[in-house]
């Protein structure tokens, strides 16, 4: 039996982040899928818009609870838990003047969402909650919000709640972070900066760095064959040269992968996992399988 990717992650709440377009949601869905395949009750959490998770989970959706948190509802739930009654909260947010006022409180949106993640975690309905966070820089801002509220609002109910959210679903040990990156130097550099900030601002490092869309090296000898062709058949020399450019670009990409891998190791993540490049969109089930194969090797 393959060792699942979820066995590399110990904490009940897992945040998945990375630069936009690197395959964050696919990896998040794959981790949730894998956890559920190994008998855990798993939830994939997305904010406001569940389109990406829906598309990636596809037909396998039934194994994983797909929780899409909407801001309006999250805010009512959060305020309701402070005020002791949802009806007051609902009246508060639907009051014409107060509604605008509330919308102006900085970072309340992030706060309400993380409060709902906290509520999901304490409901004990799931063994594993995989949260698809926004891209890189924003993800850190998100995770800093509960603590910022705690500092700024002190012993007020919102401040106390901020402390609780931080302790229960953000603090080291309660949650883990998975960072998805690509085997491209620029993307990896950004990942390196993200991990640096993570260490300085949250005091943690990612548990797993997933290097996505890794190119496999071409077999040795192709280059020599094309060079020989150009020498022997001048009529094909320009085609041969063009093909050599393409082969060089491919091998550069493989070199980039090695470089990216080195950087990913240097951020001191517990595990660095690579996923192959699949010229077409893979499903969560495909990715879960690759993750397992890589995790056990």
């Amino acid at each position: 039996m393959p060792i699942g990717i979820s066995s590399l992650l110990k904490a009940p709440v897992v945040y998945v982040t990375g630069k936009g377009g690197v395959g964050k949601t696919t990896v998040a869905a794959a981790i949730a899928y894998d956890a559920s395949r190994h008998g855990q009750r798993a939830a994939l959490v997305e904010f406001d818009d569940g389109e990406a998770g829906e598309r990636t989970l596809g037909a396998d959706r039934s194994h994983v609870a797909h929780v899409v948190l909407r801001y309006d509802k999250s805010l009512v739930d959060t305020l309701g838990s402070i005020l002791g009654a949802k009806i007051i909260a609902r009246a508060l947010v639907s009051h014409h003047a107060l509604r605008r006022l509330i919308s102006a409180v900085p970072a309340l949106r992030e706060f309400a969402f993380l409060d709902r993640v906290c509520a999901l975690a304490s409901s004990k309905r799931y063994d594993r909650i995989i949260v698809d966070l926004p891209a890189s820089g924003h993800a850190l801002d998100w995770l800093r919000v509960p603590n910022a509220f705690a500092r700024f609002l002190g012993r007020s109910p919102l401040g106390v709640l901020g402390r609780r959210i931080h302790d229960e679903v953000v603090a080291v040990g309660m949650s883990e972070i998975v960072v998805v990156t690509l085997a491209e130097p620029l993307v990896v550099k950004e990942t390196e900066q993200l991990c640096e900030r993570m260490k300085n601002e949250l005091g943690t490092v990612p548990s797993v760095v997933v290097v996505n869309r890794v190119m496999m090296p071409d077999p040795d000898g192709a280059w020599e064959a094309v060079v020989a062709l150009a020498e022997r058949h001048p009529a094909l020399a320009s085609d041969a040269k063009e093909l050599l450019d393409i082969l060089r670009a491919r091998s550069d990409q493989v070199d980039d992968t090695e470089y990216a891998f080195g950087l990913a190791r240097a951020v001191q993540a517990r595990h660095v996992i690579r996923l192959p490049d699949a010229a077409a969109d893979p499903s969560a089930a495909d990715v879960a399988q690759w993750l397992c194969a890589e995790a056990s090797s």
């Binding site: 402070i82 005020l83 007051i88 609002l153 007020s156 109910p157 919102l158 401040g159």
Partner: peptide, 11 residues
């Protein structure tokens, strides 16, 4: 009163 209750008076 309600706003004060949520964010506290300093806030």
């Amino acid at each position: 009163a309600i706003m004060g209750k949520i964010v506290g008076l300093d806030g």
